[in-house]
Design a protein around this nucleic acid. Structure first.
Length: 362
DNA sequence: GTATGCTTTCGGC
DNA sequence: TTACGGCCGAAAGCATAC
């Protein structure tokens, strides 16, 4: 039986939550912002409602630029409170999980789901189920979402973005080619600005254009793997399964430094609360780490990292702090002043079932 | 050649 | 005129082992 896959996306999520908690916001542009703390308004827009987007506001835009776009317009600039959105997200995902065969959460506001067994491959049933899911999320949480249904993840994801907000788009197998053909190539997941530019240089701007290109002809510019994926995706072919993802594979924390600096002591001092927060998060999730990274963003916003794999997994704060300091010492020999700094723990091990540390400490 | 492991960078939201 | 976060997963690139 061929698959039926869905993709659900909570509409302009953070801003919608803010509207929900303060309905008076609905009448004006709402911008949920990450304030970096460096100056009064340094930071970026994380999400905005559609009223803000009408004025040209976009995710990732510097706050100062958004202020200019909205000069003279009554607007709400709201600091992002991630933990708040997480509570809504967790409840929505729990609801969704209970109504599908398999759920694969891919972000705080989106998830793929497989309903092949539940619907017996019947698109009519899948469509009715999607409407029911939308209704339930709205009545339980007061949130709207957009859902796409199709034969695989690539099609479902494009479908969920096709009609937003509060949309539902069902693309049956026979309709895939027609649905995709006129779309710009960058609607395909994996085609961002860089890949889109490379494709454009080859005269490819639409999915139809992409579907005519062979994987070989794309390979040298994009790499074999991406070339094959895009060649298939453009024809609506994608056998990537919907999988219930277990634990996170990495956890990280980033901060913006008060001032650009190359001084290890200054950087580790400012980063220290973030390092502790990361360790607490790991401990709360019963996770040990075996790999530690220092992350630096230079004044020109370029990214630099140094990482180290430990002999054995640990969750010790002292070890984490020591490794972070050493990694930054090495990193700072190779780069100039940093604007932002971060720490990442990866190669995580779930210690839930570990009754003692003897396995790792001998 | 292929699998595997590790570090660094990229892309998406 | 410039302006600029904090996460995540995964790919790329390279080395080693068989």
């Amino acid at each position: 039986m061929s698959r039926i896959v869905g993709h659900l996306d909570l509409d302009y999520f953070y801003a919608q939550v803010e509207e929900l908690e303060d309905p008076a916001l609905k009448s004006k542009p709402v911008l949920v912002c990450v304030y970096s703390g460096r100056t009064e308004e340094s930071g970026v827009v994380s999400t905005s409602n559609y009223k803000a987007r009408e004025h040209g506001v976009r995710s990732g835009m510097p706050i100062a630029l958004a202020k200019r776009a909205l000069a003279g317009v009554d607007s709400a600039f709201i600091p992002m409170v991630h933990s708040k959105y997480e509570l809504y997200s967790d409840r929505v995902m729990e609801t969704l999980r209970s109504k599908v065969d398999v759920l694969e959460q891919t972000g705080i506001d989106e998830a793929f789901f497989d309903v092949t067994k539940l619907t017996g491959g019947d698109y009519g049933k899948a469509s009715a189920l999607a409407r029911e899911i939308k209704r339930e999320i709205l009545s339980d949480e007061g949130l709207t979402c957009s859902i796409g249904i199709g034969p695989n993840k690539v099609v479902a994801k494009i479908a969920s973005a096709f009609n937003k907000p509060d949309g539902l788009t069902v693309v049956r197998e026979g309709d895939v080619a027609g649905f995709l053909s006129e779309m710009p190539a960058d609607r395909i997941y994996g085609v961002g600005p860089k890949t889109a530019k490379i494709l454009e240089e080859k005269g490819i701007t639409t999915i139809a254009g992409l579907s005519k290109a062979t994987a070989d002809s794309l390979s040298s510019a994009l790499g074999r793997r991406l070339a094959v994926y895009l060649h298939n995706a453009a024809q609506g072919i994608d056998d990537d399964p919907v999988v219930d993802r277990a634990e996170a594979t990495q956890l990280s924390r980033m901060i913006t430094l008060k001032h650009d600096t190359n001084d290890v002591e200054q950087i580790t001092r400012e980063l220290s609360p973030a390092v502790r927060d990361l360790q607490e998060k790991l401990a709360a999730k019963n996770l040990f780490f075996r790999n530690v990274s220092a992350i630096g963003i230079s004044t020109d916003l370029s990214l630099h990292t140094k990482s180290k794999t430990l002999e054995a997994p640990t969750n010790d704060l002292g070890v984490l702090e020591t490794e972070v300091e050493e990694l930054f010492e090495a990193l700072l020999l190779e780069v100039g002043d940093l604007r932002r700094a971060g720490v990442r723990a990866s190669d995580l091990k779930d210690m839930q079932d570990q009754s003692s540390l003897t396995e790792f400490t001998g």
